[in-house]
Amino acid sequence: MLETLRLRYFQGNQFIKDIENAPMRKQFRGFPVLNPNEDASACEGVCPTGALNLNPLSIDMGKCTFCGACARACKAVEFTNGYKLASTDREKLVVTPDMTYEDYQKTAVEVRDEIHRIFGHSLKLRQVSAAGCNGCEMELNACSNVNFDMGRFGIDFVASPRHADGIVITGPISENMAYALEDCYKSTPDPKIVILCGACAISGGVFQNAGKLNREFLEKYPIDLYIPGCPVHPLTFINAVLSFIKK
């Protein structure tokens, strides 16, 4: 017992106090900025998911794996360490030249009164890994560890869809998970939200041309929040949900 308490002493406090303004290491590849004055021709064909479009120049964060291949190939693309990447609108994930990180954040998440009223103080989520590679899953688990401590905001992952206010989907949605995913969605009581987490869930990512996917779910049901990343960083996820449920 005393030894366990001794561990506590050495451990100190680990949590990040101000999640919304938490500093991010400069090496992190987050929000991309495009410079149309630079020659982008060297970037042709380097993007593994087709997120980077050269004519006209744009980058789709819904497809981007933030691998940095384009930024290494030419000067037209540069990744900042901006980690607030989420949007309520699929179209807005497409970054165009001269769009700054600050501009993007102003309009990316549309705040809705009813969301705040219903989920503002407590949001319980059921996560469904639909062929997710365990990258996003591990980062979502990390959201609840002592560093990020998402639970302090009333946001938690729960075991049953019956207890949930919404579902978080990771992975490109395989044929073999399509039924279970839809079943889980139907088992979640109304009103409910759907969050797509990571490049695979949003666009199929590197698996967009894989033969064993079934992404019909996304056409059938409304999606409330898109969170880009590969995998999604815990700070990206927590800030995305906070900005979505706040006033």
Partner: peptide, 18 residues
């Protein structure tokens, strides 16, 4: 449940990211 068809993708579009 996780089956995506990865081995076929390595034939059509191999990459480090895949």
């Amino acid at each position: 449940y996780q089956s995506r068809g990865v081995e076929e993708l390595f034939i059509s579009s191999p990459s480090n990211q895949l």
